[in-house]
Design a protein around this nucleic acid. Structure first.
Ligand SMILES: [Mn+2]
Ligand SMILES: [Mn+2]
Ligand SMILES: [Mn+2]
Ligand SMILES: [Mn+2]
Lengths: 218, 218
DNA sequence: AAATATTTTTAGGTTAATCTAAATGTATTA
DNA sequence: TAATACATTTAGATTAACCTAAAAATATTT
């Protein structure tokens, strides 16, 4: 049984491990969790003693198989709760992440099983992220980040990389949402910013930074 | 802002204060929370410093007005979540209390407001207990404990005193539920046990201890 | 390969929430 | 009222999760 803090560390380390093929570093964990490297060292010792991480001094950590299973259960809960908040309680997609950060630690197998059933076994959360099933299995939609696309290319928004409230509110404002059709009208070489057409209607300019956080179908 | 532990203490002390007109004692709190008197002394010092309790050494504690408001918000959340679990997720009434003990600490005003709306502003939880509104206001149904009733008396079950799973499962087994009609067929002087008729049908024997935990309409 | 910079760990504290054992205050009873 | 019993508080530890500052290991430059 993992504590709240342990679950948060494990989940974050799992996410970081998905972004690199090498071991996850102490500082990367500290940055992600807004904590200090010394605290991370303490915690990764504890987690590796519990068998969810493998750790060698100065070499960073890797998530073990049991660690991955545990991390995916937390992620499953997080994404199911986000789906509940949007689908049933009419939250906007920018309002759910913080609450889900709390709800993901509620410990009840029956609760999660019934919640999943109540939501009709959703496959993706409000940000387009896949929801692992009770065995930790999931399937991501094939996707490409908008900043990697070429002039003239078009596709449907399938996910957003960042669940930050300000970012999502900005997407709302300019008319972007999961399922929206995007066509790249012009790509500015200088700064990587884009002029895009949304749903074959209005066209808008977005910065490279924004385009990096939007995934579309290939 | 109160921590989980502080919220649990405050809620328990509030409940205990409803059962006596005098101050709540250190030992009563320790018993309720399955903790030790020394731990309680520490915590009540902290809570009285925060202004939610008033405390005099060796004289027990009383819940202040702000303490009562805070306690009722926790109780509101607990009972709304129990209602959600039963009404929406098809939990049995004996399965909800433990999960609600966790969920009651989730901190989001919007969540509770929307949950209340989603449940259509329920007035009572699955055990017949009143759900305080956002201002802490609630109304209990007039009720009398079954052991206080006389031979021949009848009424409708409006609440149960104990949310203990074993007790509620036992009620299920003998066919008792909120809304059931009970008539006292015979009251045994010797041990206070009762023969009751349920919904004008079958008759059953229940112990005094069970009858003390059932409330019916007057 | 030294020297320097960066990363990570260790050492030593802090705070919240718990505990046991001892001390002290309050209540009961002979 | 003095002795005894019971309730409560205090003293002193423990554990989890943090921190800062210093030490040690690793990486990067000259
Ligand atoms: Mn999220
Ligand atoms: Mn999400
Ligand atoms: Mn309950
Ligand atoms: Mn209840």
């Amino acid at each position: 049984m993992l504590s709240f803090a342990e679950e948060n560390y494990l989940k974050t380390i799992y996410h970081l491990s998905q972004e690199t093929d090498s071991a996850v570093t102490t500082n990367a964990i500290a940055d992600s969790l807004n904590t200090k490297a010394a605290s991370v060292t303490d915690m990764i010792k504890k987690l590796s003693k519990k068998g969810v991480l493998s750790y060698q001094k100065y070499k960073g950590v890797q998530v073990s198989k049991t660690g991955e299973i545990a991390a995916l259960q937390v992620i499953r809960k997080h994404r199911l709760w986000e789906t509940f908040l949007v689908d049933k309680l009419k939250f906007n997609w920018d309002q759910v992440h913080e609450v889900a950060e709390q709800l993901e630690h509620i410990n009840s197998d029956l609760l999660i099983q019934r919640l999943d059933e109540f939501l009709a076994y959703p496959k993706y959360d409000p940000h387009g992220d896949p929801i692992p099933d009770e065995n930790g299995l999931f399937k991501s939609k094939p996707r490409v980040a908008l900043d990697q696309c070429l002039d003239g290319q078009s596709g449907i928004i399938v996910a957003v990389k960042d669940s930050n409230s300000a970012f999502l509110k900005y997407l709302d404002k300019i008319g972007l949402y999961l399922g929206a059709k995007i066509k790249i009208i012009d790509k500015v070489e200088f700064d990587g910013s884009l002029e895009i057409q949304i749903d074959n209607k209005k066209s808008t300019f977005i910065s490279k930074e924004v385009s990096e956080n939007i995934w579309i179908t290939e």
